[in-house]
Design a protein around this nucleic acid. Structure first.
Length: 493
RNA sequence: GGCCCCGUCGCCAAGUGGUAAGGCAGAGGUCUGCAAAACCUCCAUCACCAGUUCGAAUCUGGUCGGGGCCUCCA
């Protein structure tokens, strides 16, 4: 099996062939740092995090660049509103971004460049484009002469005439053509600025990504990613800038993740219907959010709702319950040196096979354009298998099952790790969910334990009426009791 | 208006030519004092219509419905 990816440029799934065998160079558009990240950012970053992890898992040496855009109109505007410098503002939100991504358990990219550290490269790129006749200076601004670049709009698949209608020249701009876009903007009073051949100014929006990507990855690299909404104009303009300057293909594979919707509508800042990562994390474990995002394919839209988050939590809990049960089983049943099973039942055989080939099923799903939803489906089947062997509990006659349980739990952790999942200690993770859930129930763990003890005594006296009364009362408050041979435990519904 | 995407079980969600993964919910069963958890069994012909094909959820055309981009946006 080989990796196939959907390339926005061709509109098809293609076999992935890196430029340099065994190595992948990947650039993903990060954030403009002027506000807290919302769950749309969370999705984009989680999606490319697992792409990064999976590429490494299959053996590629990956150079992953994710930038911060720290100079921009919105940053300047917000900084002015707050009466602080652009630099102070962007530094504040770079820290916030780093914290959010760390909380979500993202692996660190190889490089995280800031646009303002690449001003010299940006100016050099502008000069090159001017020399090639693809850009021009006008009143201290520099614009890209879009009509001179033949491949323009090849990524977004539009045509110039139709685009004309919406394009316009803002007051103060001196564009030759409404479609042209700014590479460099002359500084207005009070704006951050850098010296350039065209006077003091600052970069336009798209040029920083061209400059940072070519500096760190070269003129042509393998993968460029980002949200769908960046296809036009951002990525289209990046292509014009980079290919215009180098004369070489910019990127081989363009990957774009789908949106997060709220009530079937795109979540966005302009609509005001967005949730920040910090909002969500008040009510949900970060791993639940990650799990929720990965249960859909990265290109599909996902609908964000309390209901869907709750389902994700139930699903993730199922994994941790199984891992916990596996841990406990292995702890109480030492694995013999040479596990045997004289008579393997059909059901056991089925589970053994499933777990033995789990990596293959997982890889086949992920090789198909990073189909995490299908991959998780396979992992769920392994959960059922493990639970089944534990349920059979015939370890005396067939201790080989212990080996399979051990193997299954190990693979679950290893493959889950590729998705950034199941990294916690299961008992501790479940315990955390319990105490978090308790806050909403208005009950203390001690109170519950007391009631459990009272019920235990009642049951011993065969006073089942009283015992059931206690259980029902707790259930009404969302507390479920689970009886076992070793006593009674509880969990929040 | 132009371009693009989507419409799969009650809900979420895979599946892009060979008679529909998985999760949640639901029904029955095993276990249990009774439950819960776990396990077993059951539960969809893929918006609609017309084509192509031996064969389509999967390809083509159309209809209806939803969404996105064209302005800042992951």
């Amino acid at each position: 099996m080989s990796l196939r990816v959907y390339n926005t440029l061709s509109g098809k799934k293609e076999e992935f062939k890196p430029i340099e065998p065994g190595k992948v160079r990947m650039y993903v558009c990060g954030v403009t740092v002027y506000d807290y990240c919302h769950i749309g950012h969370a999705r984009a970053n989680i999606v490319f995090d697992i792409i990064y992890r999976y590429l490494r898992y299959v053996g590629f040496d990956v150079t992953y660049v994710r930038n911060y855009t720290d100079v921009d109109d919105k940053i300047i505007k917000r900084a002015n509103e707050r009466g602080i410098s652009s630099r102070e503002l962007s530094e504040e939100f770079i820290r916030a971004f780093d914290e959010d991504m760390a909380t979500l358990g993202l692996a660190l990219p190889t490089y995280q460049p800031k646009a303002t550290d690449y001003i010299a490269e940006i100016i050099a790129l502008c000069e090159k484009l001017i020399n090639r006749g693809l850009a021009y200076e006008a009143g201290g601004d520099v614009y890209y002469r879009v009509r001179k670049f033949p491949g323009y709009l090849k990524l977004s698949k539009r045509n110039m005439e139709e685009m004309q209608a919406g394009a316009r020249i803002a007051p103060g701009e001196q564009k030759e053509d409404p479609m042209d876009f700014a590479l460099w903007k002359a500084a207005k009073p009070g704006e951050p600025n850098w010296e350039s051949p065209w006077g003091a100014g600052r970069p336009g929006w798209h040029i920083e990504c061209s400059a940072m990507s070519s500096s760190l990855l070269g003129e042509t690299f393998d993968i460029h990613g980002g949200g769908r909404d960046l296809i036009f104009p951002h990525h289209e303009n990046e292509i014009a800038q980079s290919e215009g300057a180098s004369g070489k293909p910019f990127v081989n594979y363009w990957l774009h993740n789908g949106f997060v919707n709220v009530d079937q509508e795109k979540m966005s800042k302009s609509l005001g219907n967005f949730f920040t990562i910090r909002d969500i994390l008040k009510n949900y474990d970060p791993e639940v959010l990650r799990f929720f995002i990965l249960t859909a394919h990265y290109r599909s839209p996902i609908d964000f709702s309390d209901q869907n988050l709750k389902e994700a939590k139930a699903g993730l809990s199922r994994f941790y319950e199984a891992l916990k049960a596996a841990d406990e089983t292995l702890r109480s049943h030492p694995l013999p040196e040479r596990p045997v099973c004289p008579e393997i039942s059909d059901a056991e055989r089925e589970v053994y096979d499933k777990i033995e080939h789990l990596d293959d099923f997982f890889a086949a799903a992920m090789d198909d354009d990073f189909n995490t939803a299908a991959a998780i489906g396979h992992l769920f089947e392994a959960v059922r298998g493990i639970n089944r062997l534990i349920g059979e509990a015939r370890f005396d006659e067939c201790n080989l099952s212990l080996r399979v349980i051990e193997d299954g739990a190990k693979k679950l952790r290893e493959l889950g790790g590729v998705l950034g999942l199941f990294g916690s200690d299961p008992a501790a993770w479940l315990e955390r969910q319990k105490s978090a859930g308790l806050q909403g129930a208005g009950l203390s763990a001690e109170a519950i334990e007391e009631l459990i003890e009272e019920r235990r005594a009642a049951r011993q006296n065969r006073d089942f009426a009283r015992a059931d009364q206690i259980r029902d009362a707790l259930a009404a408050q969302g507390i479920e009791l689970l009886d076992s041979k070793d006593g009674t435990s509880w969990k929040v519904k």
